[in-house]
Amino acid sequence: MSDLKKLSTKIRLEVCKMLKHRGFGHLGGSLSIIETLSVLYGDVMKINPQNPNWEERDWFILSKGHAGPALYATLAVKGYFPLEMLNTLNNNDTRIPSHPDRLKTPGVDVTTGSLGQGISLAVGIAKSFQISQKPNRVYTIVGDGECNEGQVWEAFQFAAHHKLSNLIIFIDENHKQLDGPTKDIINSFDMKEKVEAFGFAVKRISGNDELAIKNAVLEMFEVKDKACCIILDTIKGQGIKYYEMLSDNHHIRFSGESEFQLDLAIEKLKEELEREGR
């Protein structure tokens, strides 16, 4: 198991444990972005967990803020705060609320949750770095359901016009949203063709392959005159077959079979890490 694959497994385990303890949460859309977070925080981003506000760091914005558990698990595993804090998810006075809050959680760069707004904030930050000629890069993950919001496309148009090559936008195309398949609610058609038409450098890859994600990011580093977008072909509930197959897997309240399957997944992930010596 590669170091990045091991990191993905650790993050997935902590997400499952956290939501098991909470009893409910946004499991599906959290699991689909874990490999991407593993690559960003485990390899390509300039970060300093001991100094989250380090001025030379790269910035990450989780535009699909309901996937906060995946970001929290990543930050905890990387040492921004103790793993034990994950058990306080959504508690009164918690430092890790349902959606990311930069004033509460060490390592969260931007408060998000209102869909469509995170990408606009990411574009604005990237533009500020371009103006000031700072080397910081900006990364953001947008959901494919979130792309129903018109504000997303305003941000895309702005990023393309200003050639924000210091920005990499990931679209988590897991093909589902709150109320069902994206193709049945608002069909996005071919997302790659659409984003290319806006003037982006675009690559579509498998979103469960850490090496493919890393290589795509490195390829985008070579782009100097365009904003960059990586479309992740993912599965909602990625990495746990039961939840991949569950039709209503956006937000789950665990009981009966869903709780039993979560317990099985936790044990399986622990065993994988034990075999690898953690």
Rank of each mutant, 00 (worst) to 15 (best):
Ser2Tyr: 05
Phe129Gln: 01
Asn208Arg: 15
Arg275Pro: 05
Glu267Ile: 11
Phe198Pro: 00
Tyr242Ser: 02
Glu271Pro: 03
Asn249Ser: 13
Lys176Ala: 01
Val202Arg: 04
Thr36Cys: 15
Arg22Phe: 15
Phe254Gly: 14
Gly207Ala: 13
Val123Ala: 13
Met18Thr: 05
Gln130Glu: 09
Lys176Glu: 04
Pro181Tyr: 15
Pro100Gln: 08
Lys64Thr: 07
Ala212Gln: 10
Gln261Trp: 05
Gly25Glu: 00
Asp172Leu: 12
Thr111Val: 11
Arg95Glu: 07
Glu149Ser: 07
Asn148Cys: 12
Leu86Ser: 03
Cys228Gln: 03
Trp153Ala: 00
His161Tyr: 12
Lys78Tyr: 05
Lys17Leu: 12
Leu103Asn: 06
Gly42Trp: 06
Trp54Cys: 10
Leu27Asn: 02
Gln177Tyr: 07
Phe200His: 01
Gly42Asn: 05
Asp93Lys: 02
Glu274Phe: 07
Tyr243Thr: 00
Glu193Cys: 14
Pro100Lys: 00
Pro97Arg: 01
Ile47Cys: 06
Gly79Phe: 04
His99Asp: 00
Gly124Phe: 06
Gly239Met: 03
Asn249Pro: 01
Pro181Ser: 11
Tyr41Trp: 09
Trp54Phe: 12
Glu35Pro: 02
Lys10Gly: 00
Glu267Asn: 15
Asn91Trp: 15
Glu55Arg: 15
Val108Gln: 00
Glu149Val: 06
Phe24Asn: 14
Pro52His: 13
Arg102Thr: 03
Phe60Ser: 06
Tyr139Ser: 04
Asp263Gln: 12
Gly150Pro: 08
Cys16Tyr: 06
Phe158Trp: 11
Gln238Gly: 02
Asp209Gly: 02
Ala197Glu: 05
Tyr80Trp: 11
Leu89Tyr: 09
Val110Phe: 00
Asp101Arg: 08
His99Val: 02
Gly113Arg: 00
Val39Ile: 13
Asp93Thr: 04
Gly143Met: 05
Asp233Leu: 13
Ile186Thr: 05
Ile231Leu: 15
Ile34Val: 14
Gly256Phe: 14
Met85Asp: 04
Glu146Met: 09
Ile186Glu: 01
Gly107Asp: 04
Thr140Gly: 04
Arg275Trp: 09
Lys20His: 14
Lys194Tyr: 09
Glu259Val: 03
Val202Gln: 12
Ala155Lys: 01
Ser98His: 10
Gly42Ala: 12
Ile61Gln: 03
Glu274His: 10
Gln238Val: 06
Ser132Phe: 11
Phe156Tyr: 12
Ala67Ile: 05
Ala265Lys: 06
Leu27His: 03
Phe189Tyr: 11
Phe81Ala: 11
Thr88Asp: 07
Asn136Tyr: 08
Lys163Tyr: 04
Asp3His: 11
Leu115Glu: 05
Leu103Lys: 08
Asn87Gln: 13
Ser30Asp: 09
Met45Asp: 10
Asn90Gln: 11
Leu218Tyr: 11
Leu27Thr: 02
Ala212Arg: 07
Ile11Ser: 03
Tyr80Thr: 07
Ile61Met: 09
Ser120Ile: 04
Glu193Pro: 04
Leu121Asn: 13
Leu19Asp: 00
Lys20Glu: 10
Gly116Thr: 04
Arg204Val: 12
Ala265Thr: 02
Ile213Tyr: 08
His26Asp: 02
Gly25Asn: 02
Ile11Val: 10
Asn174Arg: 15
His161Ser: 13
Asn215Ala: 10
Ala122Leu: 06
Ser63Phe: 06
Ser63Asn: 07
His175Pro: 00
Gly65His: 03
Gly79Thr: 09
His26Ser: 01
Ala197Asp: 07
Ile205Cys: 12
